[in-house]
Every structure is written in C-alpha cells, then in structure tokens.
C-alpha cells in the first residue's frame, strides 16, 4: 500500500489516534509528577519547584519532548476533526428517535466534546502559565527573606540586584552579570489560586480547572482502553488488566491534578 493510501484508510487513522493518545497519557504522568511538588509548603517547596521549572524550560531534551508533545496534540486534534467530518457524513439523515444510551457508554459517545473542552483548557492553561513564563520579561523572580536573588542554576547570589540584559532579567553583583535570574513560577502559581492575590478569579479558575479535569477523566475512561483496541490489542488474558488500568488511570490522574488548585485555594489565605 502506498503511504497516501495508508493515511486515507480509516484503520490507519485509528492507529495514529491511539498512538498519539497513549503518548499524551505518558505526558500526563510526567506533568503530574512534576506538579506534585506544589504540595510541598514553605520556602523549601518554592525552591524545589522553581529549580524544577527552570530545568524543564532549559533542558534541550525536555524542550524537544515538549515540542513533540505540542505537535502530537495537534496531530491528535487534526485526526479527530478528520474522523468527525467523515463520521458525520456517514449518516446524512439522522434518526428521529434514537437511544444511544441503550447500547453505548456516555464517555465513549462524548470523546469529541470532551476533547474539545480539553483543547480549550490546554490553551487557557498555556496562557495562564506557559506563555508568561516564556514571553513575559517582567515575570516575578525568586527572592529570599534576606533580599537575595538566585540565578537560574539555583545558586543564591548574596548582595545581588536585578538588571535587564537584552530584555531578560539577569542577576548582578557589583556590576558583574551572574546570569539569568531564577523565575518564581511557584509564587505565580500559588498566587494564581490565592483568594487575597487573585480575588474571585482564583475561585473561578479553581472551578474551571476542576471541570477540565472532569473532562480529562471522561476522555481517559474511554480513551485509554480504547487505544489498545484500536491497536488490535484485545486478548482474553489481558483485557481485564487493560480495563482496570484504564479505570485507575482515568480516576487517579485527573483527581490528583484537580487536587492541586483546590489545595492551593483552600490552604492559602
């Protein structure tokens, strides 16, 4: 079969959907493990999380994987659109009376809708944190009680001050450039969900994030196990395991994700 014929085929599209979907599941695990550090309180937690954030936004391997993730989200979305257009046209006249609830689960029938909700959330989430971190030259930087700044490698610079070099915030000691300042993503994140810092927006965002994670839960509760079926992995011996793993994954991952904004909102003044 030629490559174009393969890509035209319905089954090939499903493989790609499944493979990109499973890759994005791996991404969720990685993202969640990193975010767990937001549960660590105090100065220690702030330092740990900021060091982690600086590592993630500078390490070339991580950055490559991040771009691959963004591209694969795009592939997943474009394929979904192609599939939906194709599926809609496959039934030009709808039933006057239909009971899809009699033969299929809600989560399986709403993959497109939940996916759309997720895409909107991803954009909102990137605008909230990723975009300012990468493009805002006034992004808050880490400053300890003694009034010292930190360089991005995590070293405290005593008697330091900030100065812009080519628009970026650098740490200086006695007019010597010590390097890029460590940005304070931990504070930004915590303030974002803080009643005093962000007012009613904090509450609305917490609710939005929780709803988005509910969409993740529904999307995964069908998508995870379904990906295996699409790839042709359907075997009496392993079906139970895949189903159980899918259920656990689709419950635990979004639940812990959602717990972070809720925790930050509830525990902060």
């Amino acid at each position: 079969m030629s490559i174009s014929a393969i890509l035209k085929s319905s089954i090939a599209k499903k493989w790609l959907m499944a493979l990109t979907g499973l890759f994005l599941c791996l991404f969720l695990v990685g993202h969640l493990l990193g975010n767990l550090q937001l549960f660590i309180g105090g100065w220690d937690g702030t330092v740990k999380f900021n060091e982690y954030a600086e590592f993630m936004s500078s390490n070339p391997i991580v950055q490559t994987v991040a771009w691959i993730t963004k591209i694969l989200i795009g592939v997943h979305v474009v394929l979904a659109l192609l599939l939906v257009i194709n599926n809609r046209s496959a039934r030009s006249t709808n039933y006057k009376y239909n009971r899809p609830d009699k033969n299929a689960k809600f989560s399986s029938r709403t993959m497109g809708w939940m996916g759309t909700l997720l895409l909107v959330f991803i954009v909102v989430h990137l605008v909230n944190f990723w975009a300012p971190m990468h493009y805002d030259n006034e992004f808050p930087v880490q400053l300890n009680e003694a009034g010292n700044y930190y360089t991005a490698d995590g070293i405290e610079q005593v008697n330091s001050y900030l100065q812009k070099v080519e628009g970026k915030q650098h740490v200086f000691i006695n007019k010597v450039d010590m390097g890029l300042a460590m940005r304070d993503l931990a504070k930004v994140t915590k303030d974002f969900f803080s009643k005093t810092e962000n007012g009613v927006t904090a509450l609305l965002m917490m609710i939005l994030y929780a709803i988005a994670m509910l969409a993740v839960a529904f999307h995964l509760s069908h998508g995870f196990a379904s990906a295996f079926q699409s790839l042709g992995i359907n075997h009496k011996k392993y079906n139970g395991m895949i189903k159980l793993a899918g259920m656990a994954f689709s419950f635990i991952v979004p639940f812990v994700f959602a717990a972070i904004p809720v925790y930050l909102y509830v525990t902060q003044a």
Partner: peptide, 13 residues
C-alpha cells in the same frame, strides 16, 4: 472506506 461508512470509536454499540 470507499462505500462511505464511518470510523470506529470503540463505543461497542
């Protein structure tokens, strides 16, 4: 595919 049938979403219906 040529006949214009849709794709499988594994709903199991």
């Amino acid at each position: 595919d040529d006949e214009g049938f849709g794709n499988c979403t594994n709903t199991g219906a």
